[in-house]
Design a protein around this nucleic acid. Structure first.
Lengths: 252, 252
DNA sequence: ATCAAGTATAATTTGGATATTTTTATATTT
DNA sequence: AAATATAAAAATATCCAAATTATACTTGAT
C-alpha cells in the first residue's frame, strides 16, 4: 500500500530474509493444495521440510495467519485454514462486488499507464496460452502468475491501494479453491475469448460491458469450482442456493 | 473468519501468549497515535518498553505489518505506517462503499440475533454517553471500543465474514486518523441523534434511509478529521478535491 | 466408564550468535 | 579545499538453539 508512487503491484520483490522466502514457499504450498486444508502445521516437521529455524518459520506462519491462509489458536499452533462451500460463495460474491467495482473505477479514472499495463498483461496471457497449446511449457512465469497478473491489472488503475489489496487477497483465496478442486482441463478457446473481451472492454472504456463480462467470468469460474468441489466431497456450508447467482440476476 | 458458528466479532479473546498481548499493546499505541506515524520501531527500545524478548516482539510486529499498521522493509526493520490525506480519502471512500453495502445486506438478510446485537450495542453507546456527560468515566470498556462495537454491529448480520473483516480493518485505520488528528470535543447531542437514527433504520429495515444515514455519518467524520489534519499540517497526498464528496452526490 | 495424576509432546519464549545496514572516519581525487 | 570514494566501527535486524511453559496423551484408580 503506497501512495507516493501511485498504485503498484503488491511487492513480489525477492526479499532476501529467510522468513520472507519461507512465507512465499508455504503460501505457494497452501494455495496449490499440497498443504491440505485443515491440516496441522507442526513446527518440527516444517522446520525440516523448509530447512529453517523456529523464528523465520514462526514469522512466516504469523504472516500467513494475518492473511487468512492459516489459523492460529492460542497455544495450540497453526493449521491450514479450512475450506467450505459457504466460504467459496462468500469469496465469490465479494470478488464480484469488489473486482467489478475496481474495474469500473479503473475505466473511469485510469490513466494511460493503466491501459498499457492491462494490454501488457493481456499479451503475456495470449503468449502463455499459445505456448501451452503448442506443448512447450518453458515460460518464465507460471500460468497462474500470468493469469493473476491480468486480473489484477484490471483493478490496478482504480486509484485505491486499499481496494487493490483486498482484491489481491480475495483472488488468492479464490485461486486456492480452484487449484484444489478444479481438475485440469485443456485451456479452451472460450478462456481466450473471455479475456480478450475483458481487455477490449478496458481499452474501449465500456463500463457496462466490463461489469457484465467480469461478473460472468468470475461467476463461471466459481460454478466450475463448486461443481468439482462437490464431486470431490467438499463439506457443504449448509446452504442450498448459490447466493452469487442471485447477484447475477441483478446484472442481466 | 469462521463459518461453522456464523458471523462473529473478530476475536478479542484475551489470548495469553506474550506475542498476542504485545500485539494488542502496540496496536493500541499506534491507533492512539502515541507511536507516531512514520517513526522507526527499534527492537531494542520496544523490548524494554513492552518488556518482552525478541521473538514475541517480532511476531507482534509481523502481524501488525500484515494488517497494515506497520511497514517492514527488507533488512531495515519496522516503522509505523505513514499517514496522508490521500490515504484518509481512500479509506473513507472504501469504508462508505463497504460498510454501507454490509449494512444493507444485514438489513436484507440479518436474523433476530442481529437485531438484538445492534440494539445491545446501541444501548451500551447511550449508556456510555450518559456516563461521559455526567462526569463519571468509570465504564469497563472504553468509549472507543463501544463506538466501534456499534458500527461493526451494523454489518455483523450481512452473512459475509470476509466483508466483516474488511470493515474491521478499515474502521481500525480510520480510527487512527481520527484519534491522531481530531481534537477532543464534547460529545454533542448530534452524535447521539445520528446513532439513534442508524439504530432505528436497522430495526425498521429501511435500507434506503440506512444508506443515506451511514454515508453521511462516515463522510461527516471524515470531513472533521481532514479539517483538523490540515490544521496540524498533515502532508497532503497531492490532490485537491475530496473524492469522497463526489460519492455523496450520488446518494442525494 | 470417569476422573486425576503423571508423562510425553509440542508451542512459546529467552538470550545470545550471526549477518546486514548505517554511520563515522580516513584516504583519494578533482 | 571540497567532493567523492573506501574502509573500519557501531548499531541493529535477523536468526538459531536451548530453556520454559502449556497442552495432549497415557495410565491407573475410583
Amino acid at each position: 500500500m503506497q501512495y507516493e508512487w501511485g498504485p503498484n503491484i503488491e511487492q513480489e520483490t525477492e526479499t532476501n530474509t529467510l522468513a520472507a522466502q519461507t512465507y512465499n514457499k508455504i503460501r505457494q504450498d497452501i494455495i496449490s493444495g499440497s498443504l491440505e486444508p485443515g491440516s496441522k502445521l507442526q513446527s518440527e516437521k516444517l522446520k525440516k521440510q523448509y530447512d529453517v529455524g523456529s523464528s523465520p518459520l514462526r514469522e512466516a506462519l504469523t504472516q500467513l495467519a494475518a492473511n487468512g491462509l492459516v489459523t492460529s489458536e492460542g497455544q495450540k499452533g497453526f493449521r491450514v485454514v479450512d475450506v467450505s462451500l459457504k466460504e467459496l460463495r462468500d469469496i465469490t460474491k465479494l470478488r464480484m462486488h469488489l473486482e467489478v467495482h475496481g474495474f469500473k473505477e479503473s475505466i473511469a479514472h485510469g490513466d494511460v499507464e493503466w491501459e498499457v499495463a492491462v494490454t501488457s498483461a493481456y499479451r503475456r496471457l495470449v503468449h502463455a496460452i499459445e505456448e501451452l497449446s503448442s506443448g512447450k511449457s518453458g515460460s518464465a512465469r507460471s500460468w497462474e502468475d500470468i493469469h493473476r497478473g491480468f486480473h489484477l491489472s484490471l483493478v490496478q488503475g482504480c486509484g485505491s491501494p486499499w481496494l487493490i489489496s483486498f482484491c489481491h487477497r480475495l483472488y488468492e483465496h479464490f485461486e486456492r479453491y480452484r487449484r484444489i478442486y478444479v481438475e485440469y482441463r485443456e485451456i479452451s478457446p472460450k478462456i481466450l475469448e473471455e479475456h480478450e473481451a475483458l481487455h477490449q472492454a478496458a481499452i474501449n472504456r465500456d463500463a457496462d460491458l466490463a461489469e457484465k463480462l467480469l461478473s460472468e467470468h468470475i461467476l463461471f469460474a466459481a460454478r466450475l469450482t463448486e461443481a468439482d468441489a462437490r464431486k470431490k466431497g467438499i463439506q457443504d456450508g449448509g446452504e442450498i442456493i448459490a447466493a452469487a447467482e442471485q447477484e447475477m440476476e441483478l446484472i442481466k
